[in-house]
Each structure stands twice: as C-alpha cells, then as structure tokens.
Amino acid sequence: MGILRFVAARAALGVLTLIAVSILLYLGTQLLPGDVASALLGQSATPEALAVLRAKLGLNEPAYLRYLHWLWGVVHGNLGNSLTTGTPIASALMPRLGNTLFLAGYAAIIAVPLAVGLGILSAIREGSLMDRLASILSLATISFPEFFVSYILIVVFASELGWLPSLATVYGGMDFWDRVDATTLPAITLTLVVVAHMLRMTRTSTLAVMSAPYVETAFLKGLSRSRVVLSHALPNALGPIINVVAINLAYLVVGVVVVEVVFVYPGVGQLMVDAVTKRDLPVVQACGLVFAIVFIGLNTIADICAALANPRLRSRKRQ
C-alpha cells in the first residue's frame, strides 16, 4: 500500500467516523425526554399549542428524515437556528469557536514544546533529580481538578500579585496582545492539565526504544547519550508521542468547559453549557459536532503523521 493510498484510506475512515458520530449525536438529543416543542412551551403548554409548534418545527417527520435534513444543512454550512434566540447558530458559534481555538492554540504553544522537551530531557537523564522532579510536579498538577488549579492561579497572580486579570474577557476587534494578556491564566491552567500526560508518554516511549538492540549498537559506536536519544531513540518513538500530543490538543479544544466557566471566557464550551441548561438542542448538536470534527480531525492527522515517520511506509514508492 502506497503512502497516498494510506492517507486517502485514513481520511475516508475519519469522514466515516464523523458521520457515525453525527448520527449518535442526533439520536442522543432525540432520546432526551420531552421534545423541543414541550421544552419551548414549558408548563403552560396546551396539547393544541404543542401540535402547532411541532408541525412548525417539522417534528412530525420521521427521525431519519429530520436527520438527513439537518445533515444536508450542516454540509452546506447551515447549522440551523437557535431555539431560544431564533438566530442562525453559525453566527453565534463561529466567533466562539475562534475564541476557543485561540485559547487552545495559546496553551498548545506553551504545553507541547514544554512537555515533549521535558520528556526527552527526562529520558536522557533517566533517574536524575530533574527527571524525578519533572515526573512528580507534572503528576501533582494533573492530580488537582482544573477548577482548583484555576482558582489557585487567580488567587496568586490576579488577586495577590495583580499581574494578570482574573476574568478572561475578550471581545471582537480586541488588540492581539490584550487578548494574550487576558487569556494567559486560562492558558497556563490548561497547560498544567495537559503537560503531565504528554511528558510521561514522551519519556516512556523514548525509554522503551532505549532497550532496542540498535540503541545498544549506537552506544557501542561511542555516541553520547544525548545523541543516542535524539537521533536513534526519538525518531522511532515518534508514533506514540504524536498520538498522545493529538489527543491532548483535542482535549484543549473539547475539554475546556470547566476552565471557560471559571474564567468566564466566551468559548464553545460555555455556549454548549448554556444551551444545555436552556434545552436548546440544535445548539448542543452543533457544538457537539464541532467538537467531534476537531477530535477526529486531529487524530486522523496524527495517524498520518505517525505513518509518515515510519520509513517503511514512507519509502515504499522507491521500490
């Protein structure tokens, strides 16, 4: 199988997974007790009013037809209208998605190099003070709940030291550096949450390769430990590292709900939480779908990158 075919197959699998997830999402929101009409009308609903509203919302059609209508709309960029505001979901979602991606990107720029770098360093200096310290500290940060870490950071850096704002207030047209300033505390919180996982995986998979015979060969050629780790062990350990980085990047996008709420940051997570409390199901679906796209997309890219890192797959075309 050539590398192009592999990429195509993996991408197709990604799309298929996405369709499956969208069906599950749709089914999930359908399974909730009561429907959108009764939710909208609340306690005062009369059977007649309900019937009228159901007809208006198209709720009397079979579920699969409604799903196909919805999917058709989504493919054409139409996520439907919010039940509570009546406005197109896309126009509310897009700026929020921008905010979420900004925060995730900010956190990733700190977290990924930090985690992978410390992981490699820990592998080079296995058993050293630095290795143990990195291991213990990262474990400590992952053991505390996110909201706890958030509040500690707010108390120290916002209330006591006054260096950074405690609320991550952002708005359209905001200056880039102001935005960075506002999102630094949530970004640090997210970094602390994801670093441990990536660090440990980098360290473990690098060390796992260190017992391979070709690593012994490299040592017996008189190479230094750092050279052996960087040029012999690391390239062969990339597969698992790429995958764990992708999962954590996805988490930075889809798992930030708590952090967004604590810092009152207008991201997709908050939008989703609001929609759930208001039973605004089309918005919940849209948010879920965005999360699924990010998650599946990142993992597909990770699989392709991991395959590219393997010379057996990469060099097939030369034979």
Binding site: E216, P235, P311
Partner: peptide
C-alpha cells in the same frame, strides 16, 4: 536486522 536503526 535488529542492530540497525530502522529509521536511518
């Protein structure tokens, strides 16, 4: 076969 690094 095992003593050569597969990715170099």
């Amino acid at each position: 076969a095992a003593a050569f690094n597969p990715s170099m």
